[in-house]
Computed example of a mutant assay.
Amino acid sequence: MNTATATTAAPSTRTVAISATGLRKSYGDKVVLDGIDLRIPEGTVFALLGPNGAGKTTTVEILSTLIAADGGEARIAGHDVAADPDAVRGRIGVTGQFAAVDGLLTAEENLILMADLHHLSRDEGRRRCAELLERFELTEAARKNVATFSGGMRRKLDLAMTLVGRPRIIFLDEPTTGLDPRSRRVMWELIRDLVTEQGVTIFLTTQYLEEADQLADRIAVLDHGKLVAEGTAEELKRLIPGGHVRVRFADETRLAAAAGLFGIATRDDESLTLQIPSDGSVANLRAVLDTLDGSGVQAESLTVHTPDLDDVFLTLTGRQNTPTTQKESNR
């Protein structure tokens, strides 16, 4: 297995919302988490990727106090998960892989039930429920049984129920699994709004690589219980070879001249293009342009090609059971 581990330190200008040091968990002889470290600033989206069985859900369960770790330390909003679980629970919300809604109740009744569990007064609970129904565009369906809801509506209600207690940190464990592309994008907008408008911290696990690419400020790849890489989407893509700049020329004369400038470039006479290895950085692109300009070779067009998160996942984990791409999910 390729375990490229180049990482970039997480931003340190914000208060840390979630941290873990040496987190470990085993079930019998099976090691699920093998000493992982996390540092997630508040008001950001952190995505955890990994193949099935990598330990993503176990990580969420430990951080949200649902199960105990075998070793290491974890802190949520400054509170030790093992020593002060009640304080942690008072600051978090959890949305699991399957919508935890009661199909026999209406949307409004589900939300009121959550308000009661959070010990909100009757008036405050009803105000909060009305606010969330409006925000999630469920007002018209408020008094309909949830059993009649589509998958997207159920997931929206599930997230709304998580927000009744105004948590500052939310764990979303594969929140859009099974949703159609339109419903998934609606959920993305709701998640973005929570972060940008309210400063909520999101810990996201997902099987959709585009979801992580679209939402996450930082992404970590978990495999066999270990974090094998962490960084922004662009940083992770630059870990993987195969990036290149493709330059097209007007004629074979210019193509030949450019080919002589880049010894390791791949020339395609039919398309009049030159493929030059690149890490996708601005500095590398500028160097290509400066070389062409300095030699007086004029290009017709230029495109930059970088590996995507599919490539990152397959290279770092060495497995074929890659999480779902958006293209695949549209089939």
Results as ranks from 00 to 15, higher is better:
residue 122 R to Q: 09
residue 28 G to E: 10
residue 230 E to C: 15
residue 151 G to C: 12
residue 36 I to E: 07
residue 31 V to Q: 13
residue 46 F to I: 03
residue 273 T to M: 06
residue 283 A to M: 03
residue 299 A to R: 14
residue 264 I to H: 13
residue 65 T to I: 08
residue 227 L to I: 15
residue 203 F to R: 14
residue 23 L to Y: 01
residue 26 S to Q: 15
residue 54 A to C: 10
residue 314 L to E: 02
residue 41 P to S: 05
residue 170 I to R: 03
residue 44 T to R: 14
residue 315 T to S: 07
residue 304 V to G: 05
residue 137 E to A: 15
residue 132 L to P: 12
residue 126 R to W: 06
residue 190 L to V: 09
residue 198 Q to C: 01
residue 268 D to C: 11
residue 202 I to E: 03
residue 312 V to S: 07
residue 196 T to M: 02
residue 120 L to I: 07
residue 321 N to G: 03
residue 179 L to H: 08
residue 146 V to H: 03
residue 207 Q to Y: 03
residue 297 V to N: 05
residue 28 G to T: 07
residue 296 G to F: 06
residue 325 T to D: 01
residue 73 E to K: 12
residue 326 Q to R: 05
residue 93 G to F: 06
residue 52 N to L: 11
residue 301 S to Y: 02
residue 202 I to M: 08
residue 305 H to R: 05
residue 58 T to H: 10
residue 270 E to C: 02
residue 1 M to H: 11
residue 287 A to L: 04
residue 92 I to W: 06
residue 313 F to I: 13
residue 196 T to W: 00
residue 288 V to C: 05
residue 293 D to T: 09
residue 316 L to Y: 06
residue 193 D to Q: 15
residue 168 R to F: 01
residue 275 Q to F: 05
residue 220 A to K: 09
residue 25 K to W: 00
residue 328 E to D: 12
residue 309 L to N: 02
residue 326 Q to V: 04
residue 258 A to H: 00
residue 79 H to Y: 15
residue 206 T to Y: 10
residue 232 T to K: 01
residue 285 L to H: 02
residue 79 H to M: 09
residue 88 V to M: 06
residue 124 E to Q: 14
residue 77 A to K: 01
residue 145 N to L: 13
residue 142 A to Y: 03
residue 70 D to P: 13
residue 162 T to L: 03
residue 82 A to W: 04
residue 323 P to F: 01
residue 264 I to P: 07
residue 86 D to T: 08
residue 229 A to K: 08
residue 160 A to D: 03
residue 188 W to A: 00
residue 257 A to P: 07
residue 285 L to A: 08
residue 114 M to V: 14
residue 230 E to K: 04
residue 126 R to E: 08
residue 326 Q to G: 14
residue 140 E to P: 03
residue 256 A to C: 07
residue 168 R to D: 11
residue 270 E to L: 13
residue 148 T to Y: 04
residue 184 R to H: 02
residue 185 R to V: 13
residue 205 T to S: 12
residue 274 L to Q: 04
residue 21 T to H: 12
residue 233 A to G: 10
residue 191 I to V: 15
residue 223 D to A: 07
residue 277 P to D: 04
residue 42 E to S: 14
residue 121 S to Q: 00
residue 316 L to S: 08
residue 326 Q to I: 10
residue 292 L to D: 06
residue 106 T to K: 01
residue 289 L to G: 00
residue 319 R to G: 06
residue 118 H to Y: 15
residue 303 T to H: 11
residue 138 L to F: 05
residue 288 V to R: 03
residue 173 D to L: 09
residue 231 G to Y: 05
residue 109 E to I: 01
residue 51 P to E: 00
residue 203 F to S: 09
residue 8 T to R: 08
residue 32 V to L: 04
residue 71 G to D: 05
residue 279 D to G: 15
residue 240 I to F: 05
residue 302 L to E: 01
residue 232 T to I: 10
residue 9 A to N: 07
residue 181 P to Y: 01
residue 197 E to A: 15
residue 235 E to T: 11
residue 321 N to L: 14
residue 235 E to C: 11
residue 120 L to E: 03
residue 89 R to G: 01
residue 177 T to C: 11
residue 253 T to K: 12
residue 237 K to Y: 05
residue 292 L to N: 01
residue 290 D to P: 00
residue 186 V to A: 07
residue 32 V to H: 08
residue 188 W to S: 02
residue 261 L to S: 06
